[in-house]
Amino acid sequence: MRLRFEYLLLCLLLIITSCGNTDVEDAEPPLDPDLGKSYFFLAPNKYREYAVYEIRYLAVDISDTLEYQLREEVREEFTVNGVESRLIHRLTRNDENENWQLDSVWSARVEAGWAVSVENNVPLQKMVFPVDTTRRWDRNLFNSRESRVQKYLTFNQPFTQGFNTFLRATVVEVSNERSQNPDGIDVTFRDLRTEVYADSIGLVRKEYEQLRFCTVGPCALQEIVQSGRYYREELIAHGFLDEAGN
C-alpha cells in the first residue's frame, strides 16, 4: 500500500513539473548580438539624407551661413589587405527642387572591435565594440593627428529629434573642451562635438561647435566669436536605393 502511495505521489509531481514547463518561453535573441555594430550601419544600397546647417566664422562680425541637403549612399565593397570596406558616395543639393550632385567619396568599414570612417583620406575610429558607456578610445588611432579621446554617453536609449524618436540610439561624445584666460573668467576656445547613431540606420545627428572667441579689446568682454565653425546634420530621410526609384 505504501509503495502504491509513493508511486502515485511521484506521478503527480511529474505531471505538475511537466505542466509548469509549458509556460516557460525561450528568451528572445538580442537585437544586436554584436553590441553596437548595427548602429554603424553599412548595409549595401542604404541611403541617408540630412538637413545641414553651417556657420563659418571668418572674423569678428563676419560669417557665412549655409543651409543645404546632404545624401550618403553605401555603395560597392572593396578589400584592402584582407579588410572589407564600402564606398560612401556623398551628394549635395541646395533643396529638394534640385538634383543631387556628387560632392565626394568616402569609405567606411566595420571590423571585429571597431568602426572606421575614412573622411577626406583621414581614417577616424568612430566606434568601438562592444559598446559600453565606460569605454574610451582614440578617434585618431589610425592617423597622425593628435590623440582625441571619445566616449559613449548613452547606448540603446531613445533619442528624439524634431518629430522623430529613435527607440534605440547611442550618443558619442567626440569632444567636450573649453579653455579660459588665466583669470578663469573669459572663455577663449570651445570645442563641443557629438554624434548620434541609431540601430539599423546609422548616423542620425552630428553637431560640431568649434569656436575661438575674441580676447582683445571691447569684444573680449562679450564672448564674441572671432573664428571657427558651427555645423549640424539632422537625418530627414533614409531607406534603400531600390525602394521607390531612390
Rank of each mutant, 00 (worst) to 15 (best):
V225E: 09
I55G: 09
F189Y: 12
C11L: 15
V52E: 01
N181G: 11
V83A: 13
T65L: 00
V174T: 05
T194M: 10
P29F: 00
F240D: 05
P182L: 15
S104D: 10
L42E: 05
E28M: 08
L9F: 13
D34N: 13
G162N: 07
F142R: 03
V204Q: 00
D32A: 01
I15Q: 11
V216E: 15
N94L: 12
D138S: 05
R109V: 07
A43E: 11
D242T: 09
T22L: 11
N120Y: 11
E54I: 03
V225S: 09
K37N: 06
Y152V: 03
L102A: 01
F142N: 09
E73K: 11
A237T: 06
D138M: 03
L124N: 03
L153W: 07
F159S: 02
T165D: 06
Q222L: 14
E146F: 08
C11S: 13
A169E: 06
D132P: 08
Q180W: 15
E173T: 00
R48V: 00
G202P: 01
E195G: 00
G202E: 04
E177F: 13
Y208V: 12
D64N: 13
C214D: 13
R48H: 08
P218L: 10
E28A: 12
V83E: 15
D95E: 01
Q222H: 13
V118W: 00
N97T: 12
Q150N: 08
S85K: 08
N246S: 11
E25S: 12
Y231G: 04
S200F: 01
G202Q: 07
L203R: 03
V149H: 00
F5A: 15
F166Q: 06
K46P: 07
W137N: 10
D103S: 13
E25W: 08
V122H: 09
Q150S: 05
R109H: 04
R232H: 08
H89C: 07
E6W: 14
Y7N: 15
N97E: 08
V60I: 15
L10H: 14
I62E: 14
R212I: 14
V149W: 10
A112C: 04
V174S: 08
